[in-house]
Design a protein around this nucleic acid. Structure first.
Length: 278
DNA sequence: AGTTGGACCTGACTGC
DNA sequence: TGCAGTCAGGTCCAAC
């Protein structure tokens, strides 16, 4: 099971930019009312129908479609959400929750087996001012995200670094896969208390986050295990081949050869090398 | 305010 | 073969 995080959302957003920019939404089909929030189906349809996709962006783990001049369609992929571009006449995939039909006959389908995801429409002018994303921290790949900013976010936090990374307030877009990979790359134990990091360790953590996320985007994201992530064309990513920690329990650490361990943490499992991560 | 753990959901897997 | 139980985890929320 691999869940969409920042690199997967970025891959989808880039592909959608190439596919649906300029396309006008002429039909909105909501198969599962809970998959549009917080609107009623009727309100969601009224917000979206008739508008043209003028931009595609990403914030954290969320692809964003700009509709017209001032509205945004916010895509919360949840655990299993997919955005698939399909031809109108082709049969919709199982678990299609919402379908947006374009004037050229194609459809953008929100397919979400686990139903943890949803779509929101919000009119706010710029993506930066979307209230639904206002609690998100800085973008890790922005040059404005620095060790100094991380230090500020970690100050006084006794929680483990993976928990803090995954909360999304210190930095946006990181979930289980990349929290494990970033901790590994930084040589830090995933449950290391956030307020005990030295300046050097914080620099390592920021550098590791940027490098892991950039490489994952370059490889089209992670498609691991069973119900895996696929991009907007239904294709797998390639980063699962380059994972160092996530889902490698018992396999040798690529750095020191010790078996990768998996320990319960925050109600989830964390994968790490007991030898390399302190 | 920070921290912790449970709820939500369903496909894949495990064990009897 | 089949069925019950368990696990996965993004996000929200209640309780300490």
């Amino acid at each position: 099971m691999s869940v969409p995080e920042l690199p997967e959302a970025e891959t989808i957003a880039r592909q959608l930019r190439a596919e649906v920019l300029g396309a006008r939404i002429v039909g909105v089909s909501v198969q599962r009312p809970m998959s549009v929030r917080p609107h009623s189906t009727r309100a969601f349809r009224a917000l979206v129908r008739g508008r043209t996709v003028t931009d595609v962006e990403r914030r954290g783990k969320c692809p964003l479609l700009r509709l017209g001049t001032d509205c945004w369609l916010i895509v919360r992929l949840g655990m299993s959400g997919r955005l698939l571009v399909g031809n109108g006449p082709t049969r919709r995939p199982l678990h299609t929750r919402v379908a947006l039909r374009f004037r050229d006959g194609r459809e953008l389908r929100f397919v979400d087996p686990r139903a943890f995801g949803w779509l929101s429409a919000e009119c706010a002018g710029e993506a930066d001012s979307l209230s639904q994303l206002s609690r998100l921290g800085p973008e890790p790949l922005s040059r404005h995200w620095t060790p100094e900013m991380l230090a500020e976010a970690l100050a006084g936090r006794r929680a483990g670094i993976e928990r803090v990374l995954m909360e999304g307030r210190a930095v946006a877009g990181i979930g289980k896969i990349y929290a494990d990979e970033i901790s590994y790359a930084a040589g830090l134990h995933p449950d290391r208390r956030a307020n005990t990091l030295s300046e050097a360790e914080m620099r390592r953590l920021v550098r590791a986050a940027k490098s892991v996320l950039r490489r994952a985007i370059h490889h089209g994201g992670t498609s691991a295990a069973d119900e895996k992530y696929v991009d907007a064309y239904g294709n797998n990513g390639g980063f699962q081949l380059l994972l160092n920690a996530y889902q490698r329990t018992g396999e040798p650490c690529r750095r020191c050869g010790e078996p990768i361990a998996r320990i319960p943490m925050n109600g989830r499992g964390a994968h790490y090398c007991p030898c390399c991560q302190r």
